[in-house]
């Protein structure tokens, strides 16, 4: 696993993509810090960190890092080497994931020096290092989850550009989740129909991933039947249900709120770690599926 991790990291650095993205992220972070903490004389480092999320910096940069992760192996047929190595599939995916995450997190690690520098000039003693590092931690966790999504998208196709576009599309969908929730009808029927439709989509995904029609039918039928049964039993359960779900899993909101308010939010930690683990797991399954098809 370590060998693959080192090879990936080396490839990012010597292939320039990692360096370019790191420089871009650092430049943008530096710009925010200069504007927020220097020019505006704000003692809140977390504000400038928040802008990394709010101004699409991660949304734009992470796909460029993750797009080649697995797609390039498929395109160049080197995945056969990985498959033939005495290394379990989950270690291959983890190595690739952590290599991508290292490249994503490296600029954030450099940014970790900035609060200390700012603290040197904090003569009024109003700057909170805890809030600053909490903000960096939250952004790092968000980036970890986004990287897992990016690596997953890279496992779907062999064209890097398409992998990047898929990643950006997923990120934008997640970014505007609260807007979608706000625009969504709150009626019980709309929620029920949406959940049944979501069950059908889930079945489609299962079918595409496993080619097993029985599993797909179960993945569609069970939740759909459950929804319909519950709807018949008590339709008020469904009133505003989908918007509520969307609000509660709002991907970027947890990071934004805990960053900007300087609050360590355990829910965010659990959420992002879970999302990262889930997408790494799904990526492993996608890679395994490649061996079966």
């Amino acid at each position: 696993m370590l060998a693959i991790y080192k090879k990936e990291l080396r490839s990012y650095l010597f292939g320039m993509m990692g360096c370019v993205i790191a420089v871009v992220m650092l430049a943008i972070a530096g710009f925010f810090i200069v504007n927020v903490n220097v020019n505006s004389a704000s003692a809140h480092f977390e504000y400038s960190t928040y802008f990394l999320v709010d101004y699409f910096v991660l949304v734009i940069t992470i796909p460029f890092i993750t797009m080649r992760s697995i797609a390039e192996e498929r395109r160049s047929k080197t995945e056969q080497l990985l498959f033939s190595l005495p290394v379990p599939m989950y270690k291959i995916v983890l190595a690739k994931y952590f290599a991508s995450l290292t490249v994503v997190a490296a600029p954030l690690a450099v940014c970790a020096v900035y609060p200390l520098i700012l603290k040197l000039f904090d003569t009024a003693g109003v700057m909170s290092l805890a809030a600053a590092y909490n903000a960096l931690l939250m952004v790092a966790l968000l980036a970890a989850a986004m990287t897992a999504i990016g690596v997953f998208a890279s496992s779907l196709v062999e064209n890097q550009i398409i992998a990047a576009l898929i990643t950006v599309a997923i990120f934008l969908l997640l970014y505007f989740m609260s807007s979608i929730a706000a625009a969504f009808p709150t009626s019980a029927t709309a929620s029920m129909v949406t959940l049944v439709a979501a069950s059908a989509v889930l079945g489609g995904i299962v079918l595409a991933a496993t080619k097993n029609s029985t599993a797909a039918c179960i993945a569609t039928g069970v939740p759909a039947a459950l929804c319909i049964a519950l709807f018949i039993y008590d339709r008020t359960l469904f009133a505003g249900l989908v918007p509520d779900i969307l609000y509660s899993i709002d991907f970027f909101a947890l990071c934004s709120s805990s960053t900007i308010y300087g609050v360590f939010d355990l829910r965010a930690v659990v959420y992002y770690v879970t999302v990262a683990a889930l997408f790494v797991f799904v990526t492993v399954q996608m890679m395994q599926r490649r061996r079966y098809n």
């Binding site: 370590l2 060998a3 693959i4 080192k6 090879k7 080396r10 490839s11 010597f14 292939g15 160049s76 047929k77 080197t78 995945e79 056969q80 080497l81 033939s84 190595l85 005495p86 290394v87």
Partner: peptide, 23 residues
């Protein structure tokens, strides 16, 4: 394999070292 699974951005030395480590 039919198509040699080579990383074109590596030298043979680096590539074989990687394979040795991975194996």
């Amino acid at each position: 394999p039919e198509t040699p699974p080579l990383y074109s951005d590596m030298t043979p030395w680096e590539y074989l070292r990687f394979v040795a480590e991975a194996k």
